[in-house]
Nucleic acid binder design. Structure first.
Lengths: 356, 356
DNA sequence: GGTTTAGATCAAACCGGTTTGGTTAACGGG
DNA sequence: CCCGTTAACCAAACCGGTTTGATCTAAACC
């Protein structure tokens, strides 16, 4: 009735061999006779033996777990579709490899550093994901100093010893700009993410580059913060300006949705008088009125590939950087040709564009 | 240059005592002379010693970690504000107690069971959170059989050996209904979450109960799935009906937002011709046009309390069930008195209500 | 036939903590 | 003065695996 879980010693006893031999047999190491191996496997099976994870962890000095530290204001975390999706992708890979995912949510920068330090010192994880890279991101050196393997999502702007798993935003942004220019827009603005984030910065640069490539003057850029609140404020500033844009490219869907609502509030109809494009392709975006033109990235797949890369790195078989399929434009109905400049009277609130 | 991390043996040697004494001293156990204790603490400090988490874990048979299994379709996970916020709350508590959070994302029900089993068998965690309770939830018995301590978010509808951390939805829903009835609505519908979820079911019941309490006939209920897509479809069904409601209470904000967009698409203005209320108070909701009347729950606090309860349970000092502050109505401008029945012509698409 | 040599196996050490049982010395009571 | 008690401490066992070095056997070689 002791219910004690069988240990490797029980298996050894039953198979009539020593602990060491059992260990060798179960780990598929050479040096065990086929017949013996068979007998050991049978014994383990019969006893329903499973290796004790903690013991294994101690003796091989591995955690069999990967870590993710999320630095985000908790009150805003809920609106960000990235992390849940990314984590889901990571998990599909980890689950089939017997690895676990350890999560930390850190508020400020201080807490973030502390988070990595704890994961490393406690040996909770064998490696970490570096997401949401910032410019001159201090985590690169920190994590390296902690002796923790890592992969970065996209390439940092500082020298990095870690493999990067890259998903290029820029083609998506460029496609949006090209799409809008193709529709006839010339006054296109951008609501950007924080400039100290690599993706905020990068999308802004991609936006400006794409305009330049089209031979258009630099559009107005409002630097914002990826939140609905920030998107609202930025959009107000743009639309209240003397010469408002006829199209706005947002750095994410959340701000774009907030932006559409600001426009509606001002009696400016989308897309008749203002074209709007987002970035992320959240589930909601397809169900707006009008449905949002946006850019899709395979965040789930990003998680999968990042997990595989990190595991490979830990096993010492790193494959170097990986490049994923770049971001792709999804045209819906929030973008349309600009209204003729003369036509100053508000158009009908919701002209019905063709079905997507 | 070995960079070997100091062990408890190093500390013992430096303090001139045995390993056991060091262990006692550092864990604040009695039976160590004050002077000796002091000397040991100094030695540990000087060597910058930190206990090896894995070794501790093995000898005391504890993981010092808590687990959360999320069963959700990964593609929809991103739109749900619950988990990130809940996790953030949990983490604030775990961080200061040296505990970690292990996450698993499971697709189907099979994977979910497997997830709990793995967490238990690998001894990855000392306890789990049971979120998103379903009716006759099989996880209660499963987790109990696995010998894993747990806390449930809200009370299950089956006998449960676990403490429940409760946040009552019903007052929020009742307040929404009362608010709408107070505005003069009599044809109020509900777009519910899946009925096999306790919260989906409970909110629906609360809705009907509140109507009954107001002496109104049962409103129409469309059972949906908490997604934008589902909210869109359900809203269409409601508004296409011969006698459409003048107000719709949604079981979450996401469906409500989708619903507002459906209404707009049909030329039905909100709130002039249709009042809409959500549930969750996501960040976006305050920045819609019109801003969404909704119900706020303290998910972050829920996570904190759940974490504390689970830790207490694991330490054998469970405090029993905990009741949190119930859900609270947040009135914004998506709800207004119903338009007079005679007024059949569409109102202006976006009547400008007073500033919030 | 004697000696290598490789392969199979075992016993013991190890990972770094915690916990147990026993020893020692100081102290108080009779 | 002697004995019993207790506080302080130590050595060793333990948690459950992995890894090392030694030993034993049997096939291979000369």
């Amino acid at each position: 009735m002791a219910e004690r879980r069988p240990t490797i010693a029980d298996v050894a006893r039953r198979a009539g061999v020593s602990k060491g031999t059992v260990s060798f047999a179960l780990n598929g190491r050479p040096g065990v006779a086929a017949a013996t191996r068979e007998r050991i496997l049978e014994a383990a099976e019969a006893l329903n033996w499973r290796p004790n994870h903690r013991a294994r962890s101690l003796s091989v000095s591995r955690a069999f777990a990967l870590g993710l530290v999320i630095a985000r204001d908790p009150s805003l975390l809920g609106s960000d579709p990235f992390f849940p999706t990314f984590i889901a992708g990571v998990e599909t890979v980890l689950a089939e490899r017997g690895q676990a995912l350890v999560l930390q949510v850190a508020g400020g920068g201080q807490a973030e550093t502390e988070g990595y330090r704890r994961l490393a010192q406690d040996g909770r994880v064998d490696g970490v994901f570096l997401t949401d890279l910032r410019r001159h991101d201090p985590r690169i050196t920190l994590v390296d100093a902690l002796g923790l393997p890592a992969v970065t999502l996209n390439r940092p702007d500082v020298p990095s010893p870690f493999p990067a798993v890259c998903l290029d935003d820029r083609p998506g942004i460029a496609a949006v700009v090209d799409h809008l220019v193709g529709l006839g827009h010339t006054r296109i603005a951008h609501v950007a993410g924080p400039d100290d984030f690599l993706h905020g910065h990068g999308r802004r640069k991609a936006f400006l580059d794409a305009l330049a490539a089209q031979g258009l003057p630099a559009g107005r850029v409002e630097v914002s913060d990826f939140t609905a609140s920030g998107g609202t404020a930025a959009t107000r500033r743009l639309l209240d300006a003397p010469d408002p844009p006829t199209a706005i490219v947002y750095a994410n869907d959340l701000m774009a949705i907030a932006g559409i609502n600001v426009a509606h509030g001002l009696g400016i109809s989308v897309p008749a008088r203002l074209s709007v494009a987002g970035f992320d392709d959240t589930e909601l975006s397809a169900h707006l009125h009008p449905p949002l033109t946006t850019v899709r990235t395979d965040v789930f797949g990003w998680g999968q590939v990042a997990a595989r890369s990190l595991l490979a790195l830990i096993d010492g078989e790193s494959t170097g950087d990986v490049e994923l399929e770049p971001a792709r434009l999804v045209v819906r109905r929030s973008t349309a040709p600009p209204s003729a400049p003369s036509e100053t009277s508000p158009a009908t609130p919701y002209p019905t564009p063709e079905e997507s």
